[in-house]
Nucleic acid binder design. Structure first.
Lengths: 316, 316
DNA sequence: AAATATTAAACACAATGTTGACATATGCAA
DNA sequence: TTGCATATGTCAACATTGTGTTTAATATTT
């Protein structure tokens, strides 16, 4: 699709998280982009320019010098950023990874953001929550936002809710708000027309969507086209969707460990209906309780989004 | 239906949210439209003109310059706006959109749109569904879109699903897609800071959100601030939310008629916890089966969105 | 007669461009 | 170590342009 449209610098700033003067300076000093000009000498950026600036910002955030990355083309930038993300997640994995799962999350700068978010959630202040999260979202690469903010935030929410320290409404409010943010991010990932498709859903009985949405986002960033069908979907329907959409993989998100026997039955049905070839990925806090059933259907259990992405990319 | 009818500038202003002088200025400076004139030199706009001005306003609200966007044709504008609808960090600079007033019936018949939507749903083609619906959404005032398209569409979906003619995945896919469209519309309604608040949710056991979202949208258009807490919320949590958020009303959406006795208990609890003063609105296909319980808690049953809006506006 | 439109000019203010300077960090050389 | 050059982010000052709004005089509609 050709991009006939052009965007003013303010728009670009909003979308990249770069300050307008920085965009100009980068252009002048390093020639990172060469925007058109209006008759009145105003810069007009294309979608490609925006993409490129986003990538450059990510690369710089990863610790690279702007002067050196400025010369790379988009493909090289993508590779660079991806490598950095993997390194970092590996590092995080080796770090204080408690098996209990929901310890105080990463020691990164994400902590204050999560605290502020949690506060808005307790106060049932959805606009505030949205503000906090979208501020964080501009500053961070998508993947980092999800891994460092969204995942730990919902781990905390789950903990607090289970111990009665958080009302159900609060959890609902958080889910509704965050799912719309994730959904928007999902739609802005551009992938090729012929990208392989992956069905994303949660099995019957599992009603929490956030995990499924994060995996859809991860899949999209790994070059797949996610087909998101939401929560609480019976096995035969999942299998039907896989076939009907001609999907090459399936991702299931298990957010709790209730009803292991029913889940086991459901999973079995899915495997039988989908055939033995279909790669089935499973993730979420509920996997622990479903161990045996998962082995039986040869599901690929992913403890975090990065391993999910790694395996997805290996499939292609 | 042929619409040769032409509209005076006042009408166009009411329907686009643009001030009359701005419409003239845009025409003079950027040639955005070229309306006919009466014998007395007054401008007469066509429906196409109105649609174009609406699109332009949307594009401008998204952060584009009117001068650059004025040159795009309608197709490009739609593409631009659809992409930009995903943007978070927008600060609205326009005044509030037009109040209800007397909306003339839509020039487009909804029927073909619904058929096309249904077709996409059966095919599990989410992008197609989104295209169909967002095309319809730019043509129609928000309220008309909801009343003439969304509501009948989901009535059809419900029928087809109950009779086994539609898969559950299809229904899921439609819900996920439409809820994101409605959510986007919801966040673009501008209302005053001090607008009275109304809590919107569905009671425990009711998991369909679309009805609740449409009522949230209706409330927003009637000058209220809806606080949306999603589906399947226990009675005490609903009551808590009402108090915590200092809401002046409550809207419940009942999408099916299962478990009437449990519902009755839930409703009773809500009324007791919320106090006898709180106006409770109830709507949706499930109201029929809940008759007695609704009377007992003095709920205001709304058969359609318009009566809901009327009663809401009477409250202020 | 009252309400509304039209035109043209002017106004006000925000957004953007350009230039030059400054601050800080980093690395290299003396 | 000190000192200097380089890389990079930031800001201030000022000119220009873009765009929403107002005003005033006139005309049309109801």
């Amino acid at each position: 699709m050709e991009t006939l449209c052009t965007h003013p610098i303010r728009y670009v700033a909003d979308h990249t998280g770069l300050k307008p003067y920085l965009i100009r300076t980068w252009e002048e000093r390093y020639g990172v982009v060469r925007p058109h000009r209006t008759s009145g000498n105003r810069r007009l950026y294309s979608d490609d320019d925006i993409r490129r600036l986003k990538l450059l910002k990510q690369a710089v955030d990863c610790g690279h010098n702007i002067s050196t990355v400025a010369e790379l083309d988009d493909k090289e930038l993508i590779a660079l950023v991806k490598r950095a993300a993997q390194d970092r997640s590996r590092q995080a994995r080796q770090g204080p990874s408690e098996p209990s799962g929901s310890q105080p999350p990463s020691p990164t700068s994400a902590w204050p953001t999560i605290e502020r978010a949690l506060n808005s959630i307790v106060q049932l202040d959805a606009p505030a929550l949205e503000t906090v999260l979208s501020e964080a979202a501009v500053d961070l690469p998508r993947q980092t936002f999800v891994v460092d903010i969204v995942v730990p935030l919902f781990a905390r929410i789950g903990d607090l809710w289970r111990t009665g320290k958080l009302k159900t409404v609060s959890e609902h409010m958080a889910s509704v708000t965050v799912r719309s943010i994730l959904w928007d991010m999902l739609r802005t990932v551009e992938n090729a027309q012929d990208a392989p498709r992956i069905v994303v859903a949660t099995p019957a009985g599992h009603r929490h969507e956030i995990g499924a949405l994060t995996s859809a986002l991860a899949a999209a960033e790994s070059g797949w086209t996610p087909l998101y069908f939401g929560p609480n979907l019976p096995s035969d329907e999942i299998a039907y969707a896989v076939k009907k959409c001609n999907a090459r993989a399936l991702s299931l998100s298990l957010c709790h460990s209730l009803n292991a026997s029913r889940l086991s039955v459901e999973l079995g049905k899915i495997r039988r209906a989908a055939g033995s070839d279909l790669p089935i990925f499973v993730g979420g806090p509920g996997v622990a309780a479903a161990g045996a059933a998962l082995e039986r259907i040869a599901a690929m259990v992913c403890d975090d989004l990065q391993t999910f992405r790694d395996r997805l990319e290996m499939l292609t």
